[in-house]
C-alpha cells in the first residue's frame, strides 16, 4: 500500500472518527440544550444500572474515537513533513497548526477532565452523592467546552487545502 492510499485511509478515518466523537457531543447539546442540575434522586433511579451501562459504552465509544481522530490527523501532517511547521504555526500551516492545538486540548479534556468526573457521576468510582452531583456540573462544562472548541476547529480544518488523491 503506497503512502497516497494510506493518506486517503487516514482522511477517511479522521472524518469518520471525528463525526462519531463530536457527533456524540452535539447529540448531548440537542438533547439537553439547557443545563438542568442533577438531583440526588436521579442518581438512585431504579433504571440507573442500565443507564450507567449505556452511558459507559457511549462514553467509551467517543473517548476512543477522539484518539483515532487525533492519531489520523497527526499522521497526515507527519507523513507530509508538515507537523513541525504546523506546530510552530509557520506560514500556510498556521491555521491547521492552531487546529492541532485545539484538537489536542479537546482530546485531553475528554480523557483527563470529563472522564475522571464522569466515572464518579456514573458510580464507576465510588463517591458520596454530593461529590457525584458536583462532578456532574464539571462534566457538563467540560463537554460544552469541547462543543464550543469544535466550531473554530472545524473552520480551521475546512480552511486547509484538498488534494484530490482518489483521482490523481
Amino acid at each position: 500500500m503506497d503512502m497516497a492510499m494510506l493518506d486517503l485511509l487516514a482522511r477517511w478515518l479522521h472524518f469518520l472518527a471525528g463525526v462519531i466523537w463530536v457527533g456524540h457531543n452535539y447529540a448531548s447539546v440537542v438533547n439537553r440544550p439547557r443545563w438542568r442540575p442533577l438531583a440526588a434522586s436521579d442518581l438512585s433511579d431504579p433504571d440507573s444500572p442500565k443507564l450507567k451501562e449505556v452511558i459507559n459504552r457511549e462514553h467509551g465509544t467517543f473517548r476512543w474515537a477522539s484518539v483515532v481522530t487525533w492519531c489520523a490527523g497527526i499522521f497526515m501532517l507527519w507523513h507530509r513533513g508538515w507537523l513541525p511547521g504546523a506546530l510552530q504555526l509557520q506560514g500556510t500551516l498556521a491555521p491547521i497548526g492552531v487546529g492541532v492545538y485545539i484538537g489536542t486540548l479537546m482530546m485531553l479534556n475528554v480523557w483527563f477532565v470529563l472522564w475522571p468526573h464522569q466515572k464518579k457521576v456514573l458510580g464507576l468510582v465510588p463517591a458520596p452523592v454530593h461529590e457525584r452531583l458536583r462532578c456532574s456540573r464539571i462534566t457538563h462544562l467540560s463537554s460544552r467546552t469541547n462543543t464550543m472548541l469544535s466550531i473554530p476547529l472545524l473552520f480551521l480544518m475546512a480552511s486547509g487545502s484538498h488534494g484530490g488523491y482518489l483521482l490523481r
Binding site: P33, W35, V98, L149, L156
Partner: peptide, 30 residues
C-alpha cells in the same frame, strides 16, 4: 452560578466568536 455553556445558543455563539477572533489573528499574522 450561571455559565454561558448552560445554554446551547450562547455556547455556539462563543464558538463562532472564537472562530472569528482566530481567523482575524491568522490573517493579521500571515
Amino acid at each position: 452560578m450561571r455559565h454561558p455553556y448552560d445554554n446551547a445558543l450562547t455556547t455556539v455563539a462563543l464558538g463562532v466568536a472564537l472562530t472569528a477572533v482566530l481567523a482575524a489573528l491568522l490573517r493579521l499574522l500571515a
